[in-house]
Amino acid sequence: MYGGGNIFEPSNHNDVLNEDPVKLQEFEARIERGEKIEPSDWMPKLYRKQLIRMIEQHAHSEIIGALPEGTWITRAPGFKRKLALMAKVQDEVGHAQLLYSAAETLGKSREDMISDLINGKSKYSNIFNYPAYTWADSCFISWLVDAGAIVNQVANSKGSYGPYCRALERICIEESFHLKYGHHCVIHLATGTPKQRQMMQEAVDRWWAPMMHFFGPSDKISVHTEILMKWKVKMASNDDCRQQFLDMYVPKIWELGLTVPDTNLKKNEETGMWEFTEPDWEEFKRVINGDGPCNEERLAVRRMAEERGQWVRNALKSADMKYVTPLA
């Protein structure tokens, strides 16, 4: 589960000017023709750097994203919901494995990626720094956070880097169940007793702001973004993803008699665009930089898993092992 709002590294035009012009031209022509770039192909340094960063953030988001839902497995209402939620959480962790491998083909080891996550140097999707207070929060995540992630992932699966696209295709197919399961859970609460309805409404109220943040701030048009778009690293702007999400899901929220806590939210029939109150980007920045309600807990849980599993990995290590970059 991952939204837009990728934090790309700042770069300047020189990064590209220093590249071999002939190779760069061949590389761009390949992307132009719609062909994929494979790990063994030549690629500009900037392309490699930004892709590693993007895929790595995506992988971390899958791992951390499993935590707020994972805590609800033991308290899920009924055996069927437990089975489904367990399967969903397992899928998310599996997605992280697929994505770490895709990033690894670009030359960053999984050790380094995990170190950067647990030491707070890497980012992950901001929305998972918020707590899931009730079962209804977990239902909101399963339906709408996954829906948002699918909007972003479907766009990215048409990108230029082969291993990332292949991982995303698999991820998108697996997530179609998450979306339906999540919707089913929300329908159950929203059409249920007044108490259930109230619980669902409160979850929507709590999660709406983080959901709007999920796609990231408006992209500034810069040379930088233009290159990422041209190289098919970034496939859709944050605003496009947000609009697509609103268009697909706001009517589905409304039809359940739920309200969205933004009185300005409406579709402008003339432009076809959704209008809404500008999200609080100061809060977004504050939380992504570590000061959210759950940042500390999320990383502490990961660090504990690392520390407690260390002896097992040490026992499995043998002297004749050698690392090679995975192939595809």
Binding site: T71, S101, E104, S109, R110, E111, D112, I114, S115, I118, N119, E296, E297, L299, A300, V301, R303, M304, E306, E307, R313, L316, K317, M321, K322, Y323, V324, P326
Partner: peptide, 24 residues
């Protein structure tokens, strides 16, 4: 369950060793 774990304070960075994640 997380509350009960009583996490220790974050004192130093954890650096993973080479081949900590084994071979591929």
């Amino acid at each position: 369950r997380i509350q009960r774990l009583n996490f220790p304070k974050w004192e130093k960075d954890l650096e993973k060793n080479h081949l900590d994640q084994l071979e591929t």
